[in-house]
Design a protein around this nucleic acid. Structure first.
Lengths: 230, 230
DNA sequence: CCAAAAGTGTTCACGCTACACCCATGC
DNA sequence: GCATGGGTGTAGCGTGAACACTTTTGG
């Protein structure tokens, strides 16, 4: 039959799992307990199975380690260099996901040999995983400007200063506190709670929640989220 | 050995080849001369071979039909639904490329059974190829706003009106001629030639050329191409 | 009262919008 | 001279950038 004459390939998914804590972006890395490259650090990955799509495989890998479902996750791109995995020809689909680091069950960390790393303290990764990480950061930077995906990285309630710290970590530059606040307030997508966070200042800072429903309504009416010019 | 226990898959590439003529965007479609779905229209595609990357496979497919090389081409995303190809499990990587339709050797059209279609006159496509096409249009729309990729679709020399017609086709809305002209002129990336195109008006319209070198210099200095607000 | 973070006000400049207007030329 | 598309001028408005200022409260 026609198709059987064609080459076939192992297909994998590799996930860049991003979180935000202590005012900086982190990613979850895995210390390999199997060959090749046993003992070295890598992204979380796995092989595609016959009865699942790539997206399903990526969610399976994520859920196995973090226990989390219904997470923001997106395809990056395919990585298909001939010798990227020295042991065999493997084509890999890169994914990235954004998780609220507090939701993450830290008991899982030891159990699976995974660890959070800030980007400037990251060990060398195997294969072309550095390239996948780089791509995920670029994507996050681009996407955060026109879609409210930043909130995926924050707890449900947050102060404007926390939100600004997140955007400063993503954009990698300082943002004017006054103008940043006004910009986000003016979009009308943040609900102010009658609660103050008293940890960071004597005056206390109001907590806010992102109103996803309102975003979707406005979005469907043609309004666009745009924080590309802050 | 570890890897041999894993499933393996046929991998394909499918290319959305876009051109611009008669003030509208077109794509190159292929009338299949093999099963499955023989006689129906599809994107140009092919199977990945053992000794090539996905990008190489996409360029090979493009070159075979158009004879063109050094073309703008980019990965869209992977398509991996279980039954997308009824004959076998095939995971496909979608690509899109932008070509100057005049460079295209029209003798090839008949020889390979391919044809240009405007989007509103497009026949139904096989498998999930409509989805791939849709994705390519979305990508083009997004990308054209912050990168000068529109020029890939035009001949080397063009009038400002032609350029505006292209952007109107991409954005799918009318643009103010006066403001559009000023916006592009102010970027300093268009070289005016001492030649007028006399076809479209009595007065004649100057021809321009996109100065890629200047763009790359400015780009590396941190200036950004941005026509997102016209 | 003071320090420090939260939050508000205000000015300025730039760039987009809208539309009026001039230009060149073939008929 | 007039119709037509090419091209310029310009007033008004909105918004981002910068920075001064007020508020709150624990020490």
């Amino acid at each position: 039959m026609f198709y059987t004459s064609k080459d076939s390939f192992h297909l994998a998914v590799d996930c860049v799992i991003l979180g935000f804590a202590e005012d900086s972006l982190k990613l979850l890395l895995y210390k390999r307990d199997f060959e090749p490259e046993k003992g070295k650090w890598s992204l979380l990955g796995g092989f595609l199975k016959r009865e699942e799509t790539l997206d399903e495989a990526a969610y399976r890998v994520l859920a196995r380690i973090t226990g989390l479902r219904n997470i923001f996750m997106e395809q990056l791109s395919a990585f298909s260099k001939l010798d990227r995995d020295p042991a065999a020809r493997v084509v890999s689909m890169g994914y990235y996901s954004l998780i609220n680091i507090n939701d993450y069950d830290s008991a899982m960390l030891k159990q699976y040999g995974v660890e959070w790393y800030a980007f400037d303290e990251m060990p060398d990764l195997i294969f072309d995983h550095d390239e996948i990480v780089e791509k995920s950061l670029k994507r996050l930077k681009r996407k955060a400007k026109t879609q409210p995906i930043g909130f995926e990285l924050l707890p449900e309630n947050f102060t404007i200063t926390q939100l600004r710290n997140l955007y400063e970590a993503i954009y990698q530059r300082k943002l004017e506190p006054a103008n940043f606040r006004r910009k986000f307030m003016s979009m009308g997508l943040l609900d102010r709670l009658p609660i103050k966070d008293m940890n960071s200042s004597r005056k206390g800072a109001f907590l806010y929640a992102f109103n996803k429903e309102k975003y979707e309504v406005l979005s469907s009416l043609g309004y666009s989220f745009d924080v590309s010019r802050i």
